[in-house]
Amino acid sequence: MSPRNPGTTLDLERISKVRVNTQAVLKRAQFIQRQKIPKKQWQAAWLLKAATLIDLTTLAGDDTASNVHRLCLKAIQPVRYDLLKKLDMHDKGVTTAAVCVYPSRVTDAVGALKAADSSLPVASVATGFPAGQTPLETRLQEVRIAVSDGATEIDIVINRMLAITGQWEAMYDEIRQFREACGPAHMKTILAVGELGSFTNVYRASMVAMMAGSDFIKTSTGKEAVNATYPVAIVMVRAIRDYFMSTGHKVQWA
Rank of each mutant, 00 (worst) to 15 (best):
M1D: 12
N5R: 09
T8W: 04
D11I: 00
L12I: 14
R14N: 10
S16V: 00
K17C: 13
V18M: 06
Q23I: 10
Q23F: 13
L26M: 09
K27Y: 09
A29D: 09
Q30V: 13
Q35I: 15
I37F: 12
K39T: 11
K39F: 06
K40Q: 08
K40H: 10
Q43K: 14
A44N: 12
L47R: 09
A60N: 11
A65P: 08
S66K: 10
N67L: 06
L73W: 05
L73H: 09
K74N: 06
A75S: 10
I76L: 10
P78I: 05
R80T: 10
Y81I: 09
D82I: 08
L83K: 03
L84F: 11
L84E: 00
L84A: 04
L84R: 05
K85E: 15
H90T: 02
H90V: 10
H90W: 06
D91V: 14
P103F: 06
V106Q: 02
D108I: 03
A109L: 06
G111S: 13
A112G: 02
A115C: 05
A115Y: 07
A115S: 11
S119Q: 09
P121R: 04
S124N: 02
A126K: 00
A126S: 14
P135E: 07
P135D: 09
E137S: 13
R139Q: 07
R139V: 04
R139Y: 08
R139C: 04
L140S: 02
E142K: 06
E142N: 09
A146Y: 02
V147H: 04
T152G: 09
L162A: 05
I164A: 07
I164N: 08
W168R: 07
E169F: 02
M171Q: 08
M171D: 01
D173R: 03
E180Q: 15
A181S: 15
P184M: 13
H186L: 14
K188E: 10
K188F: 05
T189S: 12
T189D: 07
A192D: 12
V193W: 00
G194C: 11
G197Q: 05
T200V: 01
N201P: 00
R204Q: 12
A205T: 11
V208N: 01
M211C: 06
M211A: 07
A212M: 06
D215N: 14
I217P: 00
T219L: 04
G222R: 15
E224G: 01
A225M: 12
A225C: 12
V226M: 08
V226L: 12
N227H: 10
N227E: 07
N227D: 08
A228E: 01
P231N: 10
P231G: 11
V232G: 01
I234N: 04
V237R: 08
F244Y: 13
S246M: 13
S246H: 04
G248W: 05
A254T: 14
